[in-house]
């Protein structure tokens, strides 16, 4: 009986993943799932894309595309939020993820894929930990609020700007009662 129950859960889970996967590339989705599971210590959840109207989007610094910002839900309760996007390094772009708790305070940030020879140091968990606990009330200035990385200045500044813009965007969304 237990085995059947488990397989139903597994099938349900697979369906959920299939539903989600058309929005994020497969390899990114896999990494995002791994991070959500470990950060929130949950196994089953759904990602519900946050959509905003064109009017609101115009005011935003970071545009919400319908496939970059998600509510992390279990049944009907919100566990947190996930934001996935790309930011520029010197000659390429890297994929990053920011996880928020349900109060929209940063719970974790992660560089998912880095594609360049130099600047990969921004993947350092110790460095990324500096973003944890930040929320819309915080201003993040590279070198001041976020400690610089020698030899990775461009990427580290880029990541700081990306998160700072995201926090400002969330502030606008909150003021608009969109989230």
């Amino acid at each position: 009986m237990r085995a059947i129950k488990n397989s139903i859960v597994l099938i349900l889970g697979l369906i959920f993943f299939t539903l989600q996967s058309f929005q994020l590339p497969k390899n990114i989705q896999k990494k995002v799932d791994k991070e959500i599971k470990s950060a929130f210590e949950i196994e089953l959840y759904t990602l519900e894309a946050i959509k905003v109207s064109e009017n609101v989007n115009e005011k935003l610094i970071t545009k919400i595309t319908g496939s970059n910002f998600y509510k992390i839900k279990q049944n009907d309760s919100i566990f947190g939020y996930a934001f996935v996007d790309k930011a520029p390094s010197k000659v390429a772009q890297f994929d990053y993820l920011v996880l928020f708790d349900k109060e929209l305070i940063i719970k974790k940030s992660k560089v998912l894929i880095y594609r360049e020879e130099y600047g990969g140091e921004i993947s350092s968990n110790r460095w990324l930990k500096q973003f944890v606990g930040k929320s819309a009330i915080d201003q993040l200035k590279y070198g001041k609020d976020i400690i610089a990385i020698s030899g990775a200045t461009i990427s580290a500044r880029s990541m700081t700007i990306a998160v700072n813009n995201l926090l400002k965007t969330i502030e606008i969304l909150q003021n608009n009662n969109t989230i």
């Binding site: 140091e121 350092s124 110790r126 460095w127 500096q130 400690i147 610089a148 990385i149 020698s150 030899g151």
Partner: peptide, 10 residues
């Protein structure tokens, strides 16, 4: 070898 595990130091 490059070690960058201490914030601000490389």
């Amino acid at each position: 070898l490059d070690y960058y595990g201490i914030l601000g130091l490389r």
